[in-house]
Design a binder for these strands. Structure first.
Length: 281
DNA sequence: GACCAGGGTAACT
DNA sequence: AGTTACCATGGT
């Protein structure tokens, strides 16, 4: 059990950064990550892990939920920049940026392109069931870990297509080939400069600016990047640019406006825009 | 049935 | 170097 502040389990899981969770009840979730299934619930400012084994495990999940970071400081600093962002922060003040595994995060966001979140979750589940490891049962349902690099590298393009990945299947094959061969060392990216890490990720087919930004933010702790998807584009044009803007101009603006915490700002704005359907018609 | 989704590639000017 | 069709699949 932990005391948590500036944290909402629901907001953190539902804000679109991760895909392997199920809502069991209000403020109670099943999460699949770190090759484990955990049941976690929040009661006020208490966070309760129902099936955690030892202290080492606790550390892993504390790290996963980014519980040691001072979010009040981040939110205060971001709130001082402008009113729009203040509104977005106050709308979902309990969001935290998860620390996700870089391999799973990369493949997940390759799958995400041009897809809605429920579909993304389904395809990742299909792939895990097809190639991952049985990691336990809950409510008579069997859960599978996200496949390792080795496991997924055994898959054929047709098998991945069968998981409903569609045209993204060859991209996943390419990622497996480049990573399993050692050509790209994704577990070394965190120690690199953001630009260098992105360069490496961009070598993979189907990985462009947005997906590499998501990996950088959600698993490499590169908190200054500003992943710009359709929703972020809309919210930025609607509130800040006041006209249609190009990707590079939006990202440049965001870095100047939000500074080194641009990635956090992005996540508050994303949830806000998507929930309120900002700029959509 | 048209349109869109946490985009990116390749084939065009 | 800048635009544009197209890529599978499911929801609205």
């Amino acid at each position: 059990m932990y005391k948590v502040i500036d944290f909402s389990l629901e907001e953190t899981l539902e804000c679109g950064q991760c895909f392997r969770f199920e809502k069991l009840e209000d403020n109670k979730y099943l999460v699949v990550a770190n090759s484990k299934v955990i049941i976690i619930k929040q009661e006020g400012n208490e966070l309760i892990f129902e099936n955690i084994e030892d202290e080492k495990d606790e550390k892993v999940w504390k790290n996963y939920f980014d519980l040691d970071r001072d979010y009040k400081k981040i939110k205060d600093e971001l709130s001082s920049t402008d009113k729009v962002l203040t509104d977005a922060i106050n709308y979902k003040p309990g969001i935290r940026l998860l620390k996700q595994d870089v391999w799973e995060c990369l493949i997940s966001f390759i799958i995400s392109q041009n897809k809605q979140i429920p579909h993304i979750k389904q395809v990742i589940k299909n792939i895990s069931e097809a190639f991952g490891t049985n990691i336990g049962t809950y409510n008579d349902k069997v859960y599978y870990s996200f496949p390792t690099i080795e496991q997924l590298s055994k898959a054929t393009e047709d098998q991945i297509r069968a998981c409903k990945a569609g045209f993204r299947a060859p991209y996943i094959i390419d990622a497996c080939a480049k990573i399993n061969s050692g050509q790209i060392d994704i577990y070394n990216l965190e120690s690199m400069e953001t630009i260098k890490a992105k360069e490496e990720l961009l070598k993979i087919k189907g990985v462009g600016n947005k997906i590499s930004d998501c990996v950088a933010l959600f698993s490499l702790s590169k908190h200054e990047v500003f992943p710009t998807d359709v929703w972020i584009k809309r919210v930025m044009e609607y509130f800040y640019m006041k006209e249609e803007a190009e990707l590079k101009d939006i990202q440049k603006f965001a870095r100047e406006q939000f500074g080194d915490y641009a990635g956090f700002a992005q996540q508050y704005l994303f949830y806000y825009a998507r929930d309120k359907k900002i700029g959509k018609k």
